[in-house]
Structures are given as structure tokens and as C-alpha cells.
């Protein structure tokens, strides 16, 4: 009889613990997901979504082709002031880091070829510039402010997201951080 009771008590304990744990886990998970939600699709540490865009010279750039090397992925617009200021620094660092395995890829958001070309000429930009005509890459990365820069490491993961203008020194530091070892 008392053995029977002990069994029952253990079963009750188990069932109650299980129910409370499952409920608590579901609730805590929901709260954490909601509170930490940044509205971002891609966050630091995630794999950078692959994409394929064509540059001004007709070369197709596929992000995953750069696996094993770093990619300095910069989203920009010709009308955006900070973009204009940081682009010359990017150009300088591009020349220095291209052979060290860090590539610059500048994604313009849906502007006209003419405008992008004249901008590149004005600032003497030689790194590849691609235009995201349909916004599909912008949506895949959920870009809001311009400029936004994603540092993609050799492993294809997003190392850092920068949502503001960068100085030359910062760009150098960022590029060093994604240099293949």
C-alpha cells in the first residue's frame, strides 16, 4: 500500500514537473525571441545570404565564390552623404587589401547605371560596384539606413554589421578582421 503510494507520488511529481517545465520553456523562449528581435533578417554570426549581381563591367559576382576570403560588403547610394565621404577611404583600402584576400563589393540600391557610373568616375572608384535593381538583395539583408556594411569572414559568416559612416582607420581595422589567415 505505501509502496503503491510512493509510486503514485513519484509519478505525480514527474508529470507536474514535466508540465511546468514545458510550459515555462515555451514562455521563456517566446519572450526571449520577442525581446531580442531586432527586426533584422541577418544578424552578426549568421551565414551571409548568398546573392548574384552583375557589376558595371558585366562581371557576375556571387558572394559564395569568395568563400575562403573576406568580403567587405557595402550597401550605398549616390545621394547619401556619408557614402560619398567613406568611398574614397574604401578605395584606398581596397588597393591595399585586395591582394591580401579581402574583397570590396559595393551594392548600389536600385539607381540608374548612368548615375552610378558618373559617381564612380567622379570618385575614381575601381572596386566592383553592382546595382541591386529589384531590391531583392536589399530585402535579403533587410537594409534600412545607408550606408550599411557587412563584414563577411572567410567562413561566409557575418562578422560585423556597421550602420554608420566609417573612417579610413576603421575600414583598415575591419578589413584586417576578415583577412584570411
Amino acid at each position: 500500500m505505501s509502496q503503491d503510494r510512493e509510486k503514485k507520488r513519484k509519478k505525480r511529481m514527474f508529470v507536474r514537473t514535466a508540465i511546468l517545465v514545458v510550459l515555462a520553456a515555451a514562455i521563456i523562449y517566446t519572450i526571449v525571441v520577442n525581446v531580442t528581435a531586432t527586426g533584422e533578417i541577418v544578424e552578426e554570426g549568421d551565414m551571409a545570404p548568398d546573392f548574384m549581381l552583375t557589376d558595371m563591367d558585366g562581371n557576375v559576382h556571387k558572394l559564395s565564390d569568395y568563400r575562403g576570403e573576406g568580403v567587405f560588403l557595402n550597401f550605398w547610394g549616390t545621394w547619401c552623404g556619408p557614402c560619398k565621404r567613406e568611398m574614397p577611404h574604401m578605395e584606398d583600402m581596397y588597393k591595399e587589401f585586395e591582394e591580401k584576400g579581402v574583397h570590396v563589393l559595393a551594392v548600389n540600391i536600385a539607381e540608374s547605371d548612368l548615375k552610378v557610373k558618373s559617381f564612380a568616375n567622379t570618385y575614381g572608384l575601381t572596386f566592383p560596384i553592382v546595382i541591386d535593381k529589384t531590391n531583392s538583395v536589399r530585402d535579403a539583408y533587410n537594409i534600412r539606413p545607408l550606408p550599411t556594411t557587412f563584414l563577411v569572414g572567410p567562413d561566409g559568416k557575418v562578422k560585423k554589421i556597421i550602420k554608420q559612416e566609417m573612417t579610413g582607420d576603421q575600414i583598415r581595422e575591419y578589413m584586417e578582421s576578415i583577412m584570411p589567415s
Binding site: L20, L23, A26, I27, T30, I31, N34, V35
Partner: peptide, 15 residues
């Protein structure tokens, strides 16, 4: 609806 304690209250109601 986005604050953690309100969600927690709803969760407690669920339990």
C-alpha cells in the same frame, strides 16, 4: 505587447 513582463503575464495565465 512587446514588453517582456506583459508577455510573461500572458504566459502565467497560460500556465
Amino acid at each position: 505587447y512587446g514588453s517582456w513582463w506583459f508577455m510573461a503575464l500572458i504566459g502565467l495565465l497560460g500556465i
